[in-house]
Design a binder for these strands. Structure first.
Lengths: 202, 202
DNA sequence: CCTCCTAGCCTAATACTTATAGGCAGGAAG
DNA sequence: CTTCCTGCCTATAAGTATTAGGCTAGGAGG
């Protein structure tokens, strides 16, 4: 097919496309070889094995998301930034479900360190600059933010909200508003503030 | 091995054990047959195919979690209930990572409907009875709750919080406290209340 | 007691995916 | 021109999924 010759980059790219079309599980060396009109064994000159291929697609997805996140965050702050960043992940997941799934692929420690994982944490922290949170709390907030976004997107993609009255869109904005409100609050709302003394059920 | 003879139930159960030991991906008909000292073809008398097997394990996990959730919720309300239910999922995920992964397995619509998915929604709603939320918002809250829990657990399991200063445990209680505070608030904090007029960045 | 039937496991065969080893051809470098 | 190296190939082998068909022990019925 491709008269250009194979390349790691090209393989990873078409692997990502394949993932988006047929699911990340469908990303197989055989399928990829077929797609390039080439024998399976030939791929081993470019990637070490199928895990290597999948890892690279994972890295690609993580990078792409980080890039878009950085772009989206430019010139925004506060709630605006929060909504923008969260939107990036959700949109990416919708547009590229296979890549998004790839991004959750279990990397080994080496790749994980080299991955753009830290960049994402940086983006989250950038958003939080718009709210004033001190150090122990800021990390908690980063994690909460990540949890909400990832959890919502996963559930939505898994069809968890499919047959709901209020459509997912509304819940999405509601959740982000809630998150924003939460982060904006001074110490009174946030935990580690004195918890009200356990009112038990009426 | 097992002199008792195979059974769907037994296969699913040992499949779940296998998942916890070696990961859900390792749950294969061959592996299961090996584990039972039986030939692969024999399994086809009990399960339709490997997807069927995995689906059943998924259903098992979903059921088990729902059961534990229901138990945990008995006699609890408000924050107490929230913490208990969330704890059930997190603990289950830690104790049975393979089953937890199985629970995210993509079921086809038929199984999905029959699954205990609705039960989980019911549990979430039970928790929310401790807070007073009216209908459009209650659904949003159910989804937010689900997102936070699932997101946090997934990230934690994926090793996302591994090298953090504040350990995951602290972030977990912080997040739940935040969620509790958020749900407890009257209309003022919650969205759909008038949003402050977009203060842009300084 | 004998027959028959069935449940539960088996062998055999096919296909697909991963992986390794080694071969060949054509262009770049000397 | 010769050499070598890159990039693809064939051949081979192992693991998994799935189907077709066969064998057997043990219970139901006569």
């Amino acid at each position: 097919m491709a008269r250009v010759g194979l390349t790691v980059a090209r393989l990873v790219e078409s692997g990502a496309e394949l993932a988006d079309e047929a699911g990340f599980d469908a990303v197989t060396l055989s399928a990829l070889a077929r797609r390039h009109g080439v024998k399976v064994a030939s791929l081993y000159s470019h990637v070490a094995n199928s895990h290597d291929l999948r890892s690279r697609i994972c890295l690609l997805a993580v990078e792409e998301m980080a890039d878009r996140g950085a772009t989206a965050l430019a010139g925004r702050a506060g709630r605006d930034a929060l909504v923008a960043l969260a939107g990036v992940y959700r949109t990416y997941a919708h547009d590229h479900p296979g890549r998004y799934a790839a991004a959750e692929y279990r990397l080994d420690a080496v790749d994980a360190a080299a991955s753009a994982g830290p960049r994402h944490a940086g983006l989250a922290r950038a958003v939080l600059r718009g709210y004033d949170l001190d150090e122990p709390e800021q990390t908690h907030a980063v994690r909460l933010m990540g949890s909400v976004i990832r959890g919502f997107v996963n559930l939505e993609l898994a069809g968890g909200f499919s047959h709901g009255e209020p459509d997912a869109e509304q819940s999405w904005t509601w959740c982000l508003d809630a998150l924003d409100a939460l982060l904006r609050r001074p110490a009174d709302l946030r935990p580690s503030a004195p918890t009200t003394p356990e009112r038990s059920t009426p």
